[in-house]
Simulated scan of single mutants.
Amino acid sequence: MAIRPVAVMPKFGHMTGKENLEAYPLHKAAFFNDTQTILQLLRNGRRSISEKDMHGNTALHIATMLGHREATALLLANNAPVRTKNVDGWNPLMEAISYGDRQIITEMLRKLKSQTREHLSQRKPHLLKVFKELGDFYLEVKWDFQSWIPLLSRILPSDVCLIYKKGTKLRMDTTLADFGERNWERGDITFLYDADGPRGNQFIIMDNKTKVFQRGRNEESEMEVDEEVDVLMSTDIVNARMSTKTISFQPAYSGWVFKHAREEQLGDYPVTFFTVDGMKLTTRKRREHLSNEDVKKNKSMLTSLATGSMVGDDEFIVR
């Protein structure tokens, strides 16, 4: 049986009763799905739509947790922030996925994409300034996965990415194209990005083997949005946090008997190595919205990725 999260009105120490409810009138209105009061508060400018309670929840969090379609739609229509996270690290879209109302999830996903485009548009002047101030360069980045399991590292993916930067343009070449049957499919893929290019031509993906390309679009079709909602509703809700408060850098040493600071020559530059300690990555997952079949399918997919094979949908048919 799935357990739904319950929204709790904020409590403030010695404050009780009516004082608790009146501390955040917009949250209270969202709690009771009172659209008239929400609209009145927003029109009068008495409360910010981004205001948080003591738990870090916005009014949109509260309306979403309780599945109030009317209050949620009204808050989204007034551009309530979807990316804002509460003290536990969950944003309204994550709460919508947890509740499981497809209509709310779809509306919130569209609003999130719209707000993201607006945010990027506002930051474009700063991005262009950074690109112009940063010198042109060529960079090779080698990455791979390692595992303590014998022989597993040999079949895990690896690649050398070539990155070029000139003016406001970036190019990245990679050979890891897709996942195939028990293999990591190799290819010849190029990503092109022009920060100062015209809208609709800023991002291009090219397949150099098949001689085809695709332009990045600012808006998805209805079918693509529906497919993304399907994925969100059938996979774990994941929140990852990285803390650098306790991070420390220590010089790396080499040598068995007479240890000395590890240094190498990289091109024309001397390089000194450091070890990084104290970096903490915390990952939290929620799956109260998933069925047993969804959990089984996700687990099998992770297993197949680890072994370099893919599992067909027919293997998840419940008989």
Rank of each mutant, 00 (worst) to 15 (best):
A2D: 06
V6N: 05
F12M: 13
N20T: 12
Y24I: 03
L26M: 04
A29L: 06
N33P: 00
N33E: 05
Q40I: 06
N44E: 15
S48N: 11
I49M: 08
S50R: 12
I62H: 03
T64K: 07
M65K: 03
M65V: 02
R69H: 09
A73P: 00
A77Y: 05
V87S: 10
N91A: 11
E95H: 13
G100A: 04
I105W: 02
L112W: 12
S114R: 12
T116G: 04
E118R: 11
H119P: 00
S121L: 14
H126M: 14
H126Y: 15
K129A: 13
F131T: 03
Y138V: 11
Y138W: 08
W143M: 05
D144M: 08
F145K: 09
Q146D: 10
P150V: 06
I155F: 05
L156T: 02
Y164T: 12
R171A: 11
A177T: 05
F179S: 14
F191I: 15
Y193D: 01
G197E: 06
P198K: 14
N201V: 00
R217C: 11
R217H: 12
R217T: 13
E220K: 14
E228D: 12
E228H: 08
S234R: 01
V238M: 08
N239A: 15
T244Q: 10
I247C: 07
I247P: 00
I247T: 11
Q250T: 13
R262G: 01
E263H: 14
Q265G: 06
D268P: 00
D268M: 09
Y269F: 09
T272K: 15
T282G: 04
T283A: 11
R286M: 07
R287F: 08
S291D: 00
N292K: 06
N298M: 01
K299L: 04
M301I: 10
A306D: 06
S309Q: 10
D314T: 05
F316N: 00
V318T: 02
V318H: 00
V318F: 00
